[in-house]
Design a protein around this nucleic acid. Structure first.
Length: 933
DNA sequence: GACATCACG
DNA sequence: GACGTACGTGATGTCC
C-alpha cells in the first residue's frame, strides 16, 4: 500500500547534469592532503545543499532522489551501435570524482538511484510516470531537452542554472510542439551530441513545422508523398528507417524495472555525523562549517597541513609478479571472461606482440590484457610451429590458438568502447597495429606519456626503466626469446608458453605502472600537460605516420650514382694529395695524415687518444691547404649518399610507395618530438647540393606539398618570457629581428646595416637561447674570446631582461629541481646543483628548456587541433620538423588549407597562454619539398 | 657498443 | 683561479 499520492511532490535531480555543471563551473581543486581532485565533488555538494535548503514555495519537495547513469552500454547501443559514439571521453580528473558524488548523495541521506543498462533519463521517466499516475506532482531538476517529453499533467522541469521552471509552454518555446510530440521532433531533427542521426537537412524548426502540419511522425512518414519540397520529400521517404530508429533512441523508457518504490524516496533529514564526516574527509572547510552550524552540530576538525603519511600515498599491497599465474587464452569463452572484467572495471591494460618493430609491416602475433595487478592473460593468435628442419611445418599455425578474426571481433567493441579506458606503454605502437586490423583503439592512457609528463628529464620512459624504478621488478628480457644476430627469430616462432609469461607480464607491468602514476599526475601538477600536449597527440601522430610521405626512388637513385662518381674522383685526388691511400672515412687516419704526416697545426686529440678532425677544424686548414678542403667535400657527399640518397630508398614502403617515419613523443627532454626510422627532421636544406634531396619528397599527382613554418618562434617566445620591450616592439613592427639587435648593440642605423654585423647579432640572439658563453660565441664567430665577451656584456646592457631571465631560471631550477614552459611542462634538471662541468651543462640546458619547450608545446597544440581544422579539406598533415608542418593537399584547396592551418598555428597558444608577441607563420608550396620550403 | 662526425631546428 | 662550455635531436661509419 503506497503512501505516495495527491499532495506529494517528487523532486528528481539529474545527477550527471549536476556533476558536469559543478565540474565546469569550478577550477580544478584538489584535496590538500593528497592531491585527489575534488572540484566537482565540492561543487556538487554545494549545489545539493543549496537545493535541499532552498525556498521552493508551493513546489517544496516531499520526496527527493538523485538519479545517475550507470554503465555505458544501454539498450540504445543495441539499437544503434553509434549511439553517443562521438561523445568525448570523460576528463581524467573527473573520473575519480564520480563515485565520490554517489557517496556525497548518500551522506546527505538522499536516495541515490541508478540502474545498469539504463540511462538516468529512463529512471526519471519511470518515476515521473509512477508519481503522476499516483496523483502527485513531479519536478525534474535538469535542463536536458531529452527530458522535456515528460512534461505535463503535474510534471515540470526546473532549470537550476537559470532558476526557472519549465512547463508545457516552456517546452513549446524550445521545440515548437507540446511535450507529447517532442520525440517526434527529436526523431526528425536528430542530435549531434548523442549521435542520433535523425533526417539529414532537417532541424528542430522544420521538424516542428512538419509535425504540426501532419499531427504526428507516423502520419508524416505515411503521407510523405504529399510534401511539396522535393528534396525534403525524398529525404523522408529514403530515411524512414533511420528516422524511426531515431525515435526509438530518443523515446524514454518509462517501464524500467526498479527495485524500490516512491515511498522509499520520502524526504528525510541527514545524519549529522555521517554528513559532516564525509565533508570533513573531503576537506571542505567552508561547507563543513556551514552545515555544522545549520545542524547545530560541532564541525569536525580538518587538518590544515598535508600529513606526511598522505604525501607518501600508501600503496595497497601488491601481489608479487608470478608468471605461472598468467592465463593463456585459447578460446572465445575464456576471452569473454576477460572482456567482462574489463567492462566491469572500465579499464584494461593492452599490449600487442608482433613480428617486428615497424608498425607498418609487422603482423599481429598475440595480444595481452591485464585488469588488476597480477591478473593478466595472453591471447596467442598467429604463433607458428617452429619445428627445426621442417621447412614446410614452420609456416603452419600452432595448435591451441583462437582464430585471429574471432579474437578481433570480440575485442573490437572493447577496444573502441568510449567507456573503457585502454592502458598501454607506448600506445601509439599498439594503436597503429590495431588500426591495420580495422580497430580504432580509444580512449587510451599511456604509461610512457604519464612518466614523461611527470618525470621528464629524470630518466628514460621505456618499460624496463619504469618497471625497475617504480616497481622494483626487472621484466623478462626479450633477447633470450628471440635470440640475436643471424639466428634471431620473430615473436610468432616463440613457443606459446614462453610467450605467455613474457607478454602477459608486460600488460601486468603496464597496469601496475598506471595505477601508480595516474593518481600522482595531479600532485605533480601536470594533468593539463598530459591531457592537452601528450595524450591527444597519439592519434594525430599515428595518422601522420601511417599516411607517410611520397618519396621518388628514381630521383634518389640518380643522385646516389652521381654522388658515387664524384666521391670516387675526390678519393683519387685525396690519395694523390696525401701521397698514399687510406680510408677517407676514418677520422683517425685523416688525423694522422694531416697532423703527423703533413704536420699541420691544430691537431687536438680526443679522449681515445686519436686526432679529432671535425669540420670546423678542417675548414680552418682548408684556407691554406688543398687536402682538408677535398676531405670536407668528400665527407659532405659521403653523408648525403649514405644517410640520405641510399638509406632513404630502403625506407620506401613497397605497399604504399611512401616513407613512414616514427615520431617519438618522449624522445626529447624539452617536449620536442624526435623522428626515427628514418629521421625526416634532418633532411638537408642548408647547402644547395643537400637541398636537392628534398626534390625527392613529392606530392601525388594533382596535389602539392605545402609547408607552413613558424617565423622566429623561439626568439618571439624569448621576448615574451624574458619580457624584452625592444624585442617585442621589433616583432610587433615586423622588423628584421637580427638587424634590429645589431643596430641596438652596435649603434648602427638599420639603413646602414652590413651583412657581417647582422651575422654577429644573429649569432648572439641564438646564443642567448642556448645559454650563451663567451667561449661558445667566440668559437661560433671565430673571434677572440674577449671580444665575444664584450658583445655579450653589451647585449645584457641593452636588454637587461635577458640577464634577469637567465638568473631567475637558474635560481628556480636550483630550488625546485625543474624548470617549466609557459604551458606548465616540467623539465627536470637533476644536475643543476652538481659540481664541476656538469653544472655548466645543466645551467645552459635549464635556460634553453623553457624556450625550446614552449615552442615545442605551441606546435603540439597546433597539431592536436589540426585534424579538426582541415577535416573538410582534401589535405593531410604529413610531417613535423620542430617549427614546420608539411601537408599534402589537392591543388585547388591550397589557399583554403593555408588559411585554415595558419589560423590554427598562429593561434596555437590561445587561450591557455596570452603571448605578448604574435606568432607568424610563413607558407610555401610546390611539387616537392625543395620548392615548398 | 663507443666514438666521431654531421644532418636538422 | 681553473675548469670546461653554446641548446635539442638521430644515423652512419669506423674501430675495438
Amino acid at each position: 500500500m503506497s503512501n505516495f499520492g495527491k499532495g506529494c511532490h517528487l523532486h528528481l535531480i539529474d545527477g550527471s547534469a549536476f556533476i558536469f555543471r559543478a565540474y565546469h563551473a569550478l577550477p580544478p581543486l584538489t584535496r590538500k592532503s593528497d592531491g585527489l581532485p575534488i572540484g566537482a565533488v565540492s561543487g556538487f555538494c554545494n549545489m545539493l545543499q543549496r537545493y535541499v535548503d532552498g525556498d521552493h514555495g508551493p513546489d517544496a519537495p516531499t520526496h527527493l532522489a538523485v538519479i545517475f547513469d550507470k554503465g555505458s552500454h544501454t539498450f540504445r547501443n543495441d539499437l544503434y551501435d553509434l549511439y553517443k559514439a562521438n561523445r568525448e571521453a570523460m576528463p581524467e580528473d573527473l573520473r575519480p570524482q564520480i563515485p565520490l558524488t554517489r557517496q556525497a548523495t548518500e551522506a546527505f541521506n538522499i536516495p541515490c538511484k541508478e540502474l545498469e543498462g539504463y540511462e538516468a533519463d529512463d529512471i526519471i521517466a519511470t518515476l515521473a510516470h509512477q508519481a503522476r499516475d499516483a496523483g502527485g506532482r513531479v519536478t525534474i531538476v535538469s535542463s536536458d531537452k531529452d527530458l522535456m517529453q515528460l512534461v505535463g499533467d503535474g510534471v515540470e522541469m526546473f532549470d537550476a542554472m537559470k532558476n526557472k521552471r519549465i512547463d508545457r509552454d516552456g517546452v513549446f518555446e524550445k521545440f515548437g510542439v507540446f511535450p507529447d510530440r517532442v520525440v517526434d521532433v527529436q526523431a526528425l531533427a536528430g542530435d549531434s551530441v548523442d549521435n542520433v542521426p535523425g533526417a539529414p537537412g532537417i532541424g528542430v524548426k522544420t521538424a516542428a513545422l512538419l509535425i504540426n502540419e501532419f499531427g504526428s511522425l507516423e502520419e508524416l512518414l505515411d503521407r510523405a508523398e504529399e510534401i511539396k519540397q522535393p528534396k525534403r520529400r525524398q529525404t523522408l521517404i529514403d530515411m524512414r528507417a533511420q528516422i524511426e530508429l531515431s525515435k526509438r533512441l530518443v523515446a524514454l523508457d518509462a517501464n524500467t524495472p526498479l527495485d524500490f518504490t516512491l515511498d522509499d524516496l520520502e524526504l528525510r533529514d541527514p545524519d549529522p555525523d555521517t554528513l559532516l564526516g564525509f565533508l570533513a574527509e573531503m576537506e571542505f572547510r567552508t561547507l563543513t562549517k556551514r552545515i555544522a552550524d545549520k545542524l547545530g552540530a560541532e564541525a569536525p576538525v580538518i587538518a590544515e597541513k598535508a600529513s606526511p603519511e598522505a604525501e607518501e600515498a600508501p600503496q595497497p599491497e601488491q601481489p608479487p609478479f608470478d608468471a605461472s599465474k598468467y592465463e593463456c587464452v585459447r578460446d572465445a569463452a575464456a576471452l569473454e571472461k576477460w572482456i567482462a572484467q574489463a567492462r566491469e572495471r572500465g579499464w584494461v591494460a593492452v599490449d600487442t606482440e608482433t613480428t617486428g618493430l615497424n608498425e607498418m609491416t609487422a603482423d599481429l602475433v598475440g595480444i595481452s590484457l591485464a585488469v588488476e595487478p597480477g591478473a593478466a592473460c595472453y591471447i596467442p593468435l598467429t604463433h607458428r610451429d617452429g619445428d627445426a628442419g621442417d621447412l614446410f611445418g614452420s609456416d603452419k599455425l600452432a595448435e591451441g590458438q583462437m582464430p585471429l578474426q574471432e579474437a578481433l571481433d570480440l575485442l573490437k567493441p572493447v577496444l573502441e568502447d568510449p567507456a573503457i579506458l585502454k592502458i598501454g606503454q607506448n600506445m601509439k605502437y599498439d594503436a597503429k597495429i590495431f588500426a591495420r586490423y580495422g580497430v580504432a583503439v580509444s580512449p587510451i592512457d599511456d604509461t610512457m606519456l604519464l612518466s614523461y609528463a611527470m618525470h621528464g628529464g629524470l630518466h628514460g620512459h621505456g618499460m624496463d626503466t619504469l618497471s625497475e624504478r617504480y616497481l622494483s621488478h626487472t621484466p623478462i628480457p626479450i633477447k633470450p626469446l628471440l635470440g640475436s644476430g643471424k639466428s634471431a627469430i620473430t615473436f610468432d616462432k616463440v613457443p606459446i608458453d614462453e610467450a605467455t609469461a613474457y607478454a602477459a607480464e608486460d600488460a601486468d607491468i603496464t597496469l601496475r605502472l598506471w595505477q601508480l602514476f595516474k593518481p600522482q599526475l595531479h600532485r605533480a601538477q601536470v594533468t593539463t600537460v598530459y591531457e592537452t600536449l601528450e595524450r591527444p597527440l597519439v592519434p594525430v601522430l599515428a595518422e601522420m605516420e601511417m599516411h607517410g610521405v611520397k618519396v621518388d626512388r628514381e630521383v634518389l637513385s640518380r643522385m646516389s650514382n652521381a654522388f658515387a662518381q664524384k666521391m670516387a674522383g675526390l678519393e683519387a685526388e685525396i690519395h694523390e694529395l696525401a701521397g698514399e691511400t687510406f680510408n677517407v672515412g676514418s677520422p683517425a687516419q685523416v688525423g694522422e695524415i694531416l697532423f703527423d704526416k703533413m704536420s699541420l697545426e691544430g691537431g687536438k686529440k680526443g679522449k681515445t687518444g686519436k686526432y679529432s678532425t671535425p669540420a670546423d677544424v678542417l675548414e680552418d686548414l682548408a684556407t691554406e691547404h688543398e687536402l682538408p678542403a677535398r676531405i670536407l667535400d668528400w665527407r659532405q657527399l659521403s653523408k648525403l649518399k649514405s644517410t640520405y640518397t641510399d638509406a632513404l630508398q630502403t625506407h620506401i614502403n613497397p605497399d604504399t610507395g611512401r616513407v613512414h617515419t616514427s615520431y617519438s613523443i618522449t624522445g626529447a627532454n624539452t617536449g620536442r618530438l624526435a623522428s626515427t626510422d628514418p629521421n625526416l627532421q634532418n633532411i638537408p636544406v642548408r647547402t644547395e647540393e643537400g637541398r636537392r634531396i628534398r626534390e625527392a619528397f613529392v606530392a601525388e599527382p594533382g596535389n602539392v606539398l605545402l609547408s607552413l613554418d613558424y617565423s622566429q618562434i623561439e626568439l618571439r617566445i624569448l621576448a615574451h618570457i624574458a619580457d624584452i620591450p625592444a624585442l617585442k616592439q621589433a616583432f610587433a613592427d615586423g622588423l628584421d629581428i637580427h638587424a634590429m639587435t645589431a643596430s641596438e648593440m652596435f649603434d648602427v642605423p638599420l639603413a646602414e646595416m652590413t651583412p657581417e654585423i647582422r651575422r654577429r647579432a644573429k649569432a648572439i640572439n641564438f646564443g642567448v637561447i642556448y645559454g650563451i658563453s663567451g667561449f661558445g660565441l667566440a668559437r661560433n664567430l671565430r673571434i677572440p674570446r674577449a671580444e665575444a665577451q664584450e658583445f655579450i656584456d653589451r647585449y645584457f646592457e641593452r636588454f637587461p631582461g635577458i640577464r634577469t631571465y637567465m638568473d631567475d631560471t637558474i635560481a628556480f631550477a636550483k630550488e625546485h629541481g625543474y624548470v617549466q614552459t609557459l604551458f606548465g611542462r616540467r623539465i627536470h634538471t637533476p644536475e643543476i646543483n652538481a659540481k664541476g662541468p656538469h653544472a655548466g651543462f645543466a645551467r645552459r640546458a635549464a635556460i634553453n628548456a623553457p624556450i625550446q619547450g614552449t615552442a615545442a608545446d605551441v606546435i603540439r597544440r597546433a597539431m592536436v587541433r589540426m585534424p579538426d581544422a582541415i577535416r573538410d579539406l582534401p589535405a593531410k598533415m604529413l610531417l613535423q620538423v620542430h617549427d614546420e608542418l608539411l601537408f599534402e593537399v589537392a591543388e585547388d584547396a591550397v589557399e583554403d588549407t593555408i588559411a585554415a592551418a595558419r589560423d590554427i598555428m598562429e593561434g596555437a597558444a590561445d587561450p591557455a597562454v596570452r603571448l605578448d608577441v604574435r606568432l607568424v607563420v610563413d607558407a610555401g608550396r610546390g611539387a616537392n619539398w625543395a620548392e615548398a620550403h
